[in-house]
Design a protein around this nucleic acid. Structure first.
Length: 654
RNA sequence: GCUGCCGUAGCUCAGUGGUAGAGCACCUCAUUGGUAAUGAGGAGGUCCACAGUUCGAUCCUGUGUGGCAGCACCA
């Protein structure tokens, strides 16, 4: 007998080997009908599974949030059946559930095209309408291998070989079609419903390794209800609207062109935002850091010493004299990082332990030859500005410095309006690395403790995680991942502890006992890449920048030319207060001007006509609102300039 | 870098084996208006580059280059 506890607390005995389905049917046929799976002690399993031991049991309906994963996984199976029905000979590989949907990878001589998707969807609907039950069988390894090998499913054979010997092989059947699968599944294909959609086709490497052949992947998504699918698709459209590349064009912020792949042409508007962010960061460093500037290119020998030339040469730019007759054969590397430069500055002149911690900052422009397919607007470029700093300190000071950086990062993100969830990930030693295992053990140990402290201080808002093997070649690192207004995560800030580079460059300080000691070096960036951070901020606000960041903070718009003189006066008065304001005196209707400047996302429109000129007032219309507020010029300017104050200065004033 | 798709006016996009079009933007003229497009006219193109096929290529083929969606990569 097994004793099962139901959600209402009732406890009943059942014979060994009874299935979830039998129990549900025993309670009521309608329950059995609408149940798609069960959860035993919270673990979702097939409803047809036999129950062998005491457990808490819950019946999962397809509306249950836990069923969503099953719906998506089942849809992936149906997708695979549909594809094999349409194009026999196509090999199936894997089809997991991912965030927001699922995919299935196929091996087919001819890749899929977007036109294939509706055809496949139609076939999938047929399969779902047939409503065949999902049934599970346990096969022996040899049988399974033979069956799949006979079918020409070589990838499946490879998968079977990769499954540990002590695990059983589960085969799920839906009618005549079957697949090797871990499960669980719902009771039948009909339970999937019709709220699914195939999204796109793409290439993807077998087992995620670029040495392997490329497969054809089909991405799709599925929901329990049509309305949920519709909402999801609408959200996708919304995300597209706030694409920073689109906003960059519409707001005249920047552009790219063929001659400079991955390098930004900053227009006046975009550069204003960029400089506003830099100015903010610079204020935050005041007193604590010294700002420096190291050369843009340095002899490659320096990069050989640092190890970059060895590990990352493929991703570096080099420069030589362009002259035909030059005798100068030296090869320079354009800096991909600022650290070797900063170490040179540290080494210049003898340093004492009294100088530590020495915090050296630079808004350094670095160039990295990113793979062509990696480039993406401002988010991944080949030339970018880091809000970089290197902290030279003693080992004892290290943990405190990490916490200090943590505070700086958290408060900065808050100032830019990122008040959502935050994740700090600790990335540990990678395969490609320098330094002894003992040094790595030590560094990772300290970082672990700091991570714990970060989580404790976060008051529940900060999640932490470990990324094994993802560290930099010279040391472990923290990665700060922020969440934007529509729930997307972006890795921006980073703190990296480094016991290696100072040593490689023979950097040292004189300790209290008069001995030479290598400093510990902490690499850190708050925004990371300014270009990328700007892109993220832009998408976060969907272009509706807070006043302090807006490139054009206000536009004075005249209604008739009678107000021209007054409009100029308003503009100049605002400029005198440091506001970025223009006047639009064009011979156009006010409707036209409101539309034009709303489209370029100017936060405040100061409309002036005859009335305002006579009473020395302005009619303010804020972006995103149709409301008009009339106030005196003095009051309006006072309000605007107060609002335009960056958050850190506002804090200082309070 | 890999797979697939794409490159025509500043932008969004039609189109054709016989060297090209629309809307918006731009310029000019008229219009002086109260919160998301006033009307009329004008100007604007090496149809990404190079090679090939062809009497003739923006169109077909190849190579390169840049972009888009994924994958891989991201010190």
């Amino acid at each position: 007998m097994v004793a099962l506890t139901f959600p209402d607390g009732a406890r009943r005995d059942y014979p060994d080997g009874i299935t979830g389905f039998d129990i549900a049917k025993g309670i009521s046929p309608s329950l059995a009908k609408r149940t798609v799976a069960m959860a035993l002690d919270g673990v979702v399993v097939d409803l047809a599974d036999t129950i062998e031991k005491d457990a808490r049991i819950e019946f999962v309906s397809r509306e249950d949030p836990r069923a969503l994963e099953l719906i998506r996984h089942d849809t992936a199976h149906v997708l695979a059946e549909a594809v094999q029905a349409l194009w026999p000979g196509t090999q199936v590989t894997i089809g997991p559930v991912i965030e927001n949907g699922f995919y299935y990878d196929f091996q087919r001589n001819q890749p899929f095209t977007p036109e294939d998707l509706p055809v496949i969807e139609k076939k999938m609907k047929e399969i779902i309408a047939r409503d065949k039950p999902f049934t599970k069988e346990i096969w022996s390894r040899e049988d399974a291998k033979k069956v799949f090998a006979d079918k020409g499913e070589n990838f499946k054979v490879e998968l079977i070989n990769a499954i540990p010997e002590d695990q059983s092989l589960k085969i799920y059947k839906q009618g005549d079609w079957f697949d090797l699968c871990r499960g669980p599944h719902m009771t039948s294909t009909g339970k999937i419903g019709n709220a699914f959609k195939l999204m796109r086709v793409a290439g993807a490497y077998w087992r995620g390794d670029s040495n392997n052949p490329m497969l054809s992947r089909i991405y799709g998504t599925a929901f329990a209800k049509q309305e949920e699918l519709d909402t999801y698709l609408k959200n996708m459209e919304e995300a597209e609207k706030r694409d920073h590349r689109k906003l960059g064009r519409e707001m005249d912020l920047f552009h790219f062109q063929e001659e400079g792949p991955g390098t930004v042409f900053w227009h006046a508007n975009g550069w204003t935002i960029f400089q506003e962010i830099v100015a903010y960061m610079r204020r935050r460093l005041r007193g604590e850091y010294q700002e420096v500037n190291a050369p843009q290119m340095l002899d490659k020998s320096l990069w050989e010493t640092s190890g970059h030339w060895g590990w990352f040469r493929e991703n570096m730019f080099q420069a030589t004299s362009a002259g035909d007759d030059t005798e100068d054969e030296r090869v320079y590397a354009i800096k991909p990082m600022n650290c070797p430069g900063h170490i040179q500055i540290f080494k210049h002149g003898l340093k004492s332990y009294r100088d530590l911690p020495l915090r050296m900052a630079e808004f350094g422009i670095v160039h990295r030859y990113e793979p062509s397919g990696a480039m993406h607007g401002l988010l991944r470029v080949r030339a970018f500005t880091q809000d970089d700093a290197h902290i030279f300190c003693t080992e004892d000071q290290m943990a405190d410095e990490c916490m200090k950086i943590n505070d700086l990062i958290l408060s900065t993100y808050a100032d830019f309006g990122f008040d959502g969830a935050l994740t700090v990930k600790l990335s540990t030693r990678p395969e490609k690395r320098v330094g002894s295992d003992a040094a790595w053990d030590h560094a990772e140990d300290i970082m672990q403790n700091v991570l714990k402290k970060i989580e404790e201080q976060g008051g529940g808002r900060i999640k932490t995680a470990i990324n094994p093997g993802e560290g930099a070649f010279y040391g472990p690192k923290f990665e700060y991942v922020l969440r934007d207004a529509i729930g997307r995560d972006w890795q921006c800030g980073t703190t990296q502890v480094d016991f290696n580079l100072p040593d490689r460059f023979d950097a040292f300080y004189i300790a209290a006992d008069g001995s030479k000691k290598p400093p510990v070096m902490i690499h850190r960036a708050i925004c990371g890449s300014m270009e990328r951070f700007l892109g993220v901020v832009l998408e976060h606000f969907a272009g509706h920048m807070p006043l302090w960041l807006a490139p054009k903070q206000a536009m004075v718009c005249t209604i008739t030319s009678d107000a021209d003189d007054y409009a100029i006066e308003v503009r100049d008065a605002a400029r005198k207060l440091g506001l970025r304001v223009d006047a639009d005196l064009k011979n156009e209707k006010i409707n036209y001007k409101v539309r034009e400047h709303s489209l370029t996302k100017v936060p405040a429109l100061l409309v002036v006509g005859k009335k305002e000129a006579e009473t020395r007032s302005v009619s303010i219309r804020r972006l995103g609102s149709e409301k008009q507020t009339v106030m005196s010029l003095d009051e309006a300017l006072k309000t605007l300039s107060a609002e335009a104050l960056p958050p850190d200065l506002k804090r200082a004033q309070a």
